[in-house]
Nucleic acid binder design. Sequence first.
DNA 1: CATGAATGAGCTTTCATTCAT
DNA 2: CATGAATGAAAGCTCATTCAT
Lengths: 199, 199, 199, 199
Amino acid sequence: MRKVDPRKHDERRREILAAAGRCFSRDGFRGASIAGICKEANISPGHLYHYFENKEAIVRAMTQAAVAEADMQLELLSPEADPIATLISKIESTRVQRRDATHFLLFDMLAEAGHSPSIAKILRDSNRAMRSRFAAYLRKGQDSGHVDRTLDPDLAAAVLISAIDGAKAMGIRDPKLSQEGAHEHLKTLIVRFLKPAHD
Amino acid sequence: MRKVDPRKHDERRREILAAAGRCFSRDGFRGASIAGICKEANISPGHLYHYFENKEAIVRAMTQAAVAEADMQLELLSPEADPIATLISKIESTRVQRRDATHFLLFDMLAEAGHSPSIAKILRDSNRAMRSRFAAYLRKGQDSGHVDRTLDPDLAAAVLISAIDGAKAMGIRDPKLSQEGAHEHLKTLIVRFLKPAHD
Amino acid sequence: MRKVDPRKHDERRREILAAAGRCFSRDGFRGASIAGICKEANISPGHLYHYFENKEAIVRAMTQAAVAEADMQLELLSPEADPIATLISKIESTRVQRRDATHFLLFDMLAEAGHSPSIAKILRDSNRAMRSRFAAYLRKGQDSGHVDRTLDPDLAAAVLISAIDGAKAMGIRDPKLSQEGAHEHLKTLIVRFLKPAHD
Amino acid sequence: MRKVDPRKHDERRREILAAAGRCFSRDGFRGASIAGICKEANISPGHLYHYFENKEAIVRAMTQAAVAEADMQLELLSPEADPIATLISKIESTRVQRRDATHFLLFDMLAEAGHSPSIAKILRDSNRAMRSRFAAYLRKGQDSGHVDRTLDPDLAAAVLISAIDGAKAMGIRDPKLSQEGAHEHLKTLIVRFLKPAHD
DNA sequence: CATGAATGAGCTTTCATTCAT
DNA sequence: CATGAATGAAAGCTCATTCAT
C-alpha cells in the first residue's frame, strides 16, 4: 500500500546526477557512457532508467543543475556592497576555479546547444534568469551612482556574463598565463566598463 | 615507382577536412561519424585512412585548421588603422556570424581540450600565436598613443581574446538579444578598456 | 494462520488475465511486457508473481482461457435448431468481429505453438474438446437428416473448425473485401459441404 | 573505381534472408535475435546492417519472400487441367508439408499484421495478387463448365484462400488427425463448393 | 498481501577501423 | 589510388524476475 517515497527517490536522483557529473566532466556528454555512469553511481544500468528516461534526460538534468547552481552562486553574492566589487568577486571566483572540470562542462553545454534544442532552451532560460539578476545589480549600482547610467542594464548584463564565459575559456586556452596579471586586467576591463563619468 | 603527388595529396586532405568541418559543425566532434564524413567528401572509408590515421587525427587537423584560420583572419586586419578600431571590427565580425555553426565548433574544441591533451596543446599553441599577434597590435597602439600604456600588452591581449570567445557564447545563450545593442555595449567595453587617459 | 481466500485469489487472477489479454492483443505475446500488464491490471510487478509463476504461465493461462471461451461460445449455441444453421451463425459471429483484436491473438497462439510445446499441447487439447462438440452437433444433424450421412463427423468437424480459422485470416488478408459477399460464399461453402443428397 | 557488384550483394541478401528464415521459423519474428541470425548466416552483426536497415526490414523482406513464394507455387500449377483438380492439388501440398515450419511463419505474419502496418500491407497486396490468380482459374473453370457459374470468382477465391489458411491451422491444432481422412473431407468441401449443378 | 527498488543478461544498433581486391 | 565488404566491441536501452520492506 505504501507508495514511492519521493524523498528517497529525489536523493537517489541527485546521487546519480552527481556521478554523471563526474563522468561528464571527465569524458564529455557524448564521451561518457551509461555503463560508466552506473559504475560511478554503483547501480545497475536497468535501475538508472527508473530515475531518468534516457541519456538525454540526464544531460538535461545535469545542464539544468549546473546553470541553476551558477545562478544560485550569483544570488549568494552580498547585495549590500558596491555592485562593481560584487561582480568582480564573481569573476574572481572563476579565476580561482580556473581548472575546474565544470568549465569543460559549460563548453560541452554550449556545443551541445547546437545539436539539441532542449539543451539550447535550458541555456536560454537560465541565461534570462541570470541576466535579469545581473541587471538588477547594475540598476541598483546606477541608482547609487556606482555604475554608469548610460549603460542599458540588460545589455550590459549580457556582456558581463559573456565576459565570465570568456574568462573560463581563457583558463583553457592559456593555462599557464599569470593568474594574478590576467585577473588584474579582467578587473580593469570590468571596472572601466561600468564606472561612471567617462569624459 | 610512381610517387604520390604531394600537391594532390594535400588538396585531397583539405577537401576531406572541409567535408569533416561541415559534419563536425552539424553534429559535433563525437556526433559526426566517419561514414558521414566519407559521404560528405565523396570518398570511401578505406580511402579516408590514406589521409588520416584515425578520427582523432581528423579532429586534430580540424582544430588546427580552425584556429589557424582564426589567426589568419586576424592577420588580414589592416594594420594601418587605429588598433582599437581594428579590434572592434574583429568583434563585429563575430556578431555578424552570430549563429555561425563554427561557433559550436569552438566550444566543442574547448570541451574536447578537457579530455584530449593533444587538442589542449593545439589550443594552447594557437592561442600563444594569436595572443602575440594581438599583443603586437596593442603595443603599436600604445606607441601611437591610441592604447593605454599602463596595460600589459600580453595580458590585455588574452583578455580581449576571451572577450571574443565570450561574445560567441552570448550568441548561443541569448539568440534573441538585440544584436545592435549588444554590439554597442561590447564596443564600449573594448573602447573603455583600451582607451588611455583614465583618471 | 490467516489463509488465502481462494475465491478472491481466483478473481484477482482473472482480472490480471483480462488485463494481460488487452495487452497481448494490442502488442502480441512477445511484444507485451510484464510492466505493461501490471500497469493495465493496476498491480505491482512483484505482486503479479504471486499469481503467475512467470510470463509463460500467463501466456499459457491466456491461451487456455481464450480457447475455453471459444469452446464455451460453441456450447451456448442453441442445440435445438438445425445444426447447419447453428454452425453458420458461428461463422457469422466471426464475420461480425472481423477486425477483433482477439483474432490476432489466435494467430499468435498458432505461431507460439511452433516454439512452445506447452502452448501446442493446450491448443491440441482444446481442439479435441471443440472438435468433439462440433462432431456431436454433426451426428445429431445426421440423425435428423440435415447433414450428409457419408461424412465422418470427427473429420468434418475438424474441417469446419479450420474453416472458421480461415475466415479469421480472411479478415486480415483482405480487410476491404465485401463482408456480405464473403459471408454469403462462406455460407454456401458450409451448406454445400454438409447438405445431404449429393448425387 | 569499381562500384558495388549488385549481383553479389543480392546473393548475400538472399543468404541472410534464408538464415533469418530458419531462425524465424524456429523462434518466431520476435523471438529470433539479430545475433542468432548473424550466427546462422555466418556474418557479424555490423555487417548485417549493410544489407538490411533494421530488424523490421528483415521481417518485411522475409514476409514478402514468403508470400511471393506462395503465389509462385500457385502460378506453377498446371493451368490446363480441370481447375477443381488444380486447386485440390494445392490443398494437398499443404497437407503434405503439414508440419512445415513455414506454416508457423504464416501465423506469425498474420499476428504481426496486427502490430505492424507495413506487414499488414504486404499481406494485403500479396493476397490481392493470389486472389486474382485464383479467380482467373475459377473463371476459366466456369467457362469450361467445371465450376458453378453462380459463384462470384473473386469472393470464391477469397474463400478458397481462407480454406488453405485453415488447413494449415488444422495441422497445428490437430497434428495427429488422420491425414488422409482430413484431406478427403477437405477435398469434398472444395468439390462441393465449386461443382456446378446443385439442385 | 503488496510494493517498487534493484538486478543483469540480452536486445538492437552504431561505428571506428581493417583488408582483400 | 580507391573501393566497400567485413569486423567486433561497445553503445543505449528493455525487461523478466527477485527481494527487502
